[in-house]
Write a protein that binds this DNA or RNA. Structure first.
Length: 279
DNA sequence: TAAGGCCTGCTC
DNA sequence: GAGCAGGCCTTA
């Protein structure tokens, strides 16, 4: 599922391809993928608006327009594929399978939004003030772009009672971490996912920050993690799944101590860890 | 803090 | 054929 590295890979691929282009009339195959405003209003307002810049905050894509802002979120199974003018769409499955929205450009070419599970969607805002009306609560600081070590450690100190894994997954605390990269970061830091933040030493908090950065950097360098559905904007798979140490490896030997990896449920999420190496 | 809801396809 | 997978919102 797309987490920060996957969304960042897509952003980097798409930016040079679509910046400067203007949207034409969208084609909605699944209207509920348009979260705000109403689908008809969305289709009326979007055409003619030009993409100035493609940004990212947490797992949201920010299409900054000459007027307003288009937000996109892929949730679990969303894919955003770019098709150049006159080229065949390089969809690994059938062209129509799971296609929810087509966003054509006036200059030719189009973005295709696929989403098997229909969780992802788009919000068209005139400005950031409109978020509340759109039912959006914007994420906290991006953990890759907007937080340095001392800030992150101080933020942790402000949440002493929280358990570390649910806190890392809280997008309002810090944006970008999902289940896979959180489990990997905690294993590589030797920290048990259920630890209360107040039991972490300052050294452990700092190590966790640096480990998170290393893991996210590796994920980005690998083009993301494809456990099942994820594809980048060209339809290609990532390769970080080949370097996972705990996620999806229940029962397999720990890469460090060879004892079996365990899977428990923490705050409703499947959580993979090594009980021997993570304290 | 925890749960339910949104979804579909795969696993048991 | 039920239950699980999970990001993020809402509700309790």
């Amino acid at each position: 599922m797309p987490e920060l590295p996957e969304v960042e890979v897509i952003r980097r691929e798409l930016a040079p391809l679509i910046c400067g282009k203007s949207f034409a009339e969208p084609v909605l195959f699944y209207e509920r993928a348009i979260r705000y405003p109403r689908p008809k209003e969305f289709s009326r307002r979007l055409p003619g608006r030009c993409i100035v810049e493609l940004g990212r905050k947490g797992k949201y894509l920010f299409f900054e327009l000459d007027r307003g802002l288009l937000l996109g979120h892929l949730r679990m199974t969303g894919k955003l594929l770019y098709c150049a003018p006159g080229a065949a769409l390089d969809n690994p499955t059938a062209p129509e399978k799971d296609l929810r929205v087509k966003l054509p450009f006036a200059e030719g070419g189009a973005l295709y939004f696929y989403d098997m599970r229909k969780f992802g969607g788009f919000w068209l805002l005139e400005d950031l003030e409109e978020c509340r009306a759109a039912g959006l609560s914007l994420p906290g600081p991006d953990i890759w772009e907007e937080l340095d070590e001392s800030t992150f450690v101080a933020m942790l100190q402000g949440r002493p009672r929280a358990r570390i894994k649910p806190l890392l997954l809280d997008q309002h605390f810090a944006a970008g971490m999902g289940n896979i990269y959180t489990d990997e970061s905690l294993f590589r830091s030797g920290i048990h996912p259920c630890r209360r933040v107040q039991t972490l030493t300052e050294e452990e908090s700092a190590l966790l920050y640096r480990t998170i950065r290393d893991v996210l950097a590796a994920g980005i360098a690998c083009g993301g993690t494809t456990t099942r559905d994820y594809r980048d904007a060209r339809g290609a798979e990532g390769s970080f799944q080949n370097f996972l140490t705990v996620y999806g490896r229940k029962g397999e030997p720990c890469t460090h101590c060879s004892r079996p990896i365990e899977r428990i449920v923490v705050a409703g999420r499947g959580t993979h860890f090594c009980p021997h190496c993570q304290k």
